[in-house]
Simulated scan of single mutants.
Amino acid sequence: MTTSGRLRALEQLDRALLRVTSRDDTSPARARQLRWVAGELRRAVVREGFPEGAGSSLAALFSAEPLTAYLDLASRGELRTRAVAGSGRSTVASIRVRIDCLEILARAGEVPAELPERPAMQELKTPVGARQRSLLQGWLEAAADRPGADPGRVRLFALVGVVLDTGARAGELCALELADLGPDLDTVTVVRKPQARSVAPPATEVHELSGHTRSALRHWLDVREDLVREVQGGAKSLWVSVRGNHAGVLDAEGQARLRPPGMPLMPRGLARAYTRTVVQVNADMVGRPGWEPLPYRLEQLRRAVEPHPTEVSTPAAPPVPAKKRTRRAPVRTT
């Protein structure tokens, strides 16, 4: 196929991507996933051996043969832009995310998507048990409740308390603002973002906070006030950075420019802070009777609790036109 023929599908793909990522109900995390999948599709279309005619239109690109070919290439790691350690094969979870994004892009482009069945998820890892959660909170409290305590430990003590009271995900935690806290720190309002294939609008939940969490939040808010004092315009985010970090750009002298402390905490920064602390906790607890090492991912801590919000509100979702869909054989992954 000629370059101009391929461009028709890619131009329509770009318009669909812009349409869906500019909507208010598309989260930043989902927008990144959609851009990632669109980028892989662009690379797949121009590969030698990709199904003939797939680039003639978005409808042709989203037909069964091109989508199966794309997902097969993606599952083997052949559409990556940089090398990774190991085999490079995609996980089942990433294939499921790709299929979700393809469905969203097809809906935004008003074309049917002949998608395969989503592969079954692997068994989830065991969540953190009650004893381990209690020991983690005790360790954090001892590290945070002392003069000159490390601001990162103070922040994490409060953050873990909010996780155990609400079951919030990393992205939902980072989206919290000061205005989401109740006047006496007795509640927090969390906006739940739909995941996977869900097209339901976000749900707003109000959760009661435990006494330990309220005390930890009071301590963190005192520390936070000092951190944001020099940030121009102040910061609305509940969780902010505790030290400067690289902004990813160079100044006039070629030196990496630093973001000051007090900037909004991002999901990656949150995950790194949690992992660093767990490494230290596991080292300190070695040999203690009954101790089992904590997992290094916040997700396993979050799944250990079943929160019960006191109030839930969900805005009505706009009607979504039905699209004809053909079921195909599942993509093989390992």
Score class of each variant (00 low, 15 high):
G5R: 13
C174V: 10
V97I: 15
M1R: 13
G39F: 09
L41G: 04
R30I: 09
G86T: 11
I95C: 04
V278D: 03
V278I: 15
R146Q: 13
A203N: 00
E52W: 09
R30N: 05
R76I: 01
L294P: 05
G167E: 04
L173S: 02
G234Q: 06
V228I: 15
L176M: 07
Q132M: 03
Q137I: 10
V281D: 06
A170W: 01
A329E: 08
V278H: 03
V46F: 08
V20Q: 00
Q300Y: 14
T213I: 04
V231A: 02
A106R: 04
H308F: 05
L164P: 01
A85G: 14
G244Q: 08
R288W: 10
S313Y: 12
G53M: 11
E117K: 14
G171I: 00
G171S: 15
R43V: 03
A9E: 07
L7M: 12
L238W: 03
G129K: 11
L270E: 03
A93G: 12
D284W: 11
D14H: 09
A179H: 09
L7E: 15
L73E: 11
G287F: 09
T166F: 02
Q122K: 10
A316I: 12
T2S: 15
H308Q: 13
P295Y: 04
R302I: 01
E123C: 04
H212Q: 14
G77P: 07
L298N: 02
G49Q: 11
R153N: 04
V92P: 00
A196Y: 10
A304V: 07
A170K: 00
P112E: 08
R288P: 02
V331A: 00
D222F: 10
V320C: 05
R89Y: 08
V163C: 05
L115N: 04
L18K: 12
H308S: 13
G167M: 07
L102P: 01
G55D: 10
Q137V: 12
R272S: 15
S87D: 13
A283T: 10
R243P: 03
E292D: 15
E103A: 13
A29Y: 03
V231L: 06
H207A: 00
M285D: 08
M1L: 13
G287E: 10
V305W: 00
A120G: 08
T91I: 06
D72E: 15
D184C: 08
L105V: 09
R243A: 15
T91V: 08
R96G: 09
L181E: 05
D72T: 15
V160Y: 00
N282V: 11
E306A: 12
L258K: 14
E292N: 14
R276T: 14
P194C: 00
G152D: 08
V278S: 04
G233P: 08
E230F: 08
A179K: 13
T2P: 13
L61Q: 03
V37P: 02
T126S: 12
G248D: 09
A329Y: 01
E110K: 13
Q280C: 11
A83Q: 14
E172T: 02
A322Q: 13
S94K: 09
L270A: 04
W239L: 10
A196D: 12
